[in-house]
Design a protein around this nucleic acid. Sequence first.
DNA 1: CTGTAGATCCACCGAACGGTGGAGGCGCGA
DNA 2: TCGCGCCTCCACCGTTCGGTGGATCTACAG
Lengths: 206, 206
Amino acid sequence: MIRLLIVDDHPIVRGGLRDMFADAEDIVVVGEAGDGAAGIERAKVLAADVVLMDLRMPGMDGVAATAALREWAPSARVLILTTFDSESDVLPAIEAGAIGYLLKDALPDELMRAVRAAARGESVLAPSVTQHLMGQVRRPGAGTLTDREKEVLQLVANGSSNREAATVLFIGEASIKTHLQHIYDKLGVRDRASAVAEGYRRRLLT
Amino acid sequence: MIRLLIVDDHPIVRGGLRDMFADAEDIVVVGEAGDGAAGIERAKVLAADVVLMDLRMPGMDGVAATAALREWAPSARVLILTTFDSESDVLPAIEAGAIGYLLKDALPDELMRAVRAAARGESVLAPSVTQHLMGQVRRPGAGTLTDREKEVLQLVANGSSNREAATVLFIGEASIKTHLQHIYDKLGVRDRASAVAEGYRRRLLT
DNA sequence: CTGTAGATCCACCGAACGGTGGAGGCGCGA
DNA sequence: TCGCGCCTCCACCGTTCGGTGGATCTACAG
């Protein structure tokens, strides 16, 4: 019997999922949680085999919760179930240790098979997600900004000129320019405006 | 008896909603649809009183469907039920003729009361949505970019210089600069980088 | 018909930015 | 210990951008 935990901030979604698994004889929904922190606690207490995890949640999000589960409930397999399949969602989730990644437009039958696969330790990915993963191995390393670079990019997004950013960070204007050059290289752009755009697309910015 | 139609592209969400309304004695779910076009057809055929409409859907989205329903099924009240409450989602939906706007983290009880209110022709808005509306009347016109301005901003976000954007849009570089000045004024920023940032924050850009 | 909003275009100027090719220092793991 | 990644700083130069204050044309509502 597979012990399933549902973590999603929408009561409606939780209800739909619980209902769906009611018919399955080999799966029992042992609990629900509305955010990441509660999900971790529930997974531990209830000894869940599989955790069905949403990514976008208030408080602790799905990625952080997935990472935390590796430490606090290593035997739980995390299956991401979310609406979005952009690289910036998929990659952190996989890195954090998710065993599978499905989209919410999945058919109930697919979802059921995915849960069983996850319980066996097998990976199940939505087709579009597979594409993103393949795209990633082709360009390793690139695309990750350092903390300092993210700070600079955030300031630029907030309207700072190079000089203003330099003042805020207590460094010289020249350093800001150097950071920006590195940012341009990593993001594959040629100016601050499109760097900001890429920053939002990859969810590096707020 | 309130005849309710559910329009949402996620089977899971539809299931959760149908289940939720199963207990209500004065509400009957007469049908479901997975996109806007099907929703319009169903609303007409089934003579729905209230349409529970998602905004983000493949094909015809919720805003377009809401607008179309005013012509094809004027007696149907559209109640938006979605995950997002940004101004750029809320305002078009209200303009298109939605009578209410709820978020998917609403409690089942709230949702039930909202459907009954909508059936009576009363407006129900999520609290955060009310904020957006109030913010809008305070600065009328401001904050809304014209189609042309959105095009320009999108090109800038994609790395175009003023000259390149001008070429793409078959207009002069001077016009691009003028459009950008208007964009800066409306978004309350002073350069293209932060204009792009604001564009993403207000969901004007992809 | 007249006002308003949107789109287009113009000139001028100083300031900021992007490109290039460096350099030194620090911490960490091989 | 040596290399590597990261952060810091420098100079020079051409290009682009932002700010200002206009202008004309069209479409549409009052």
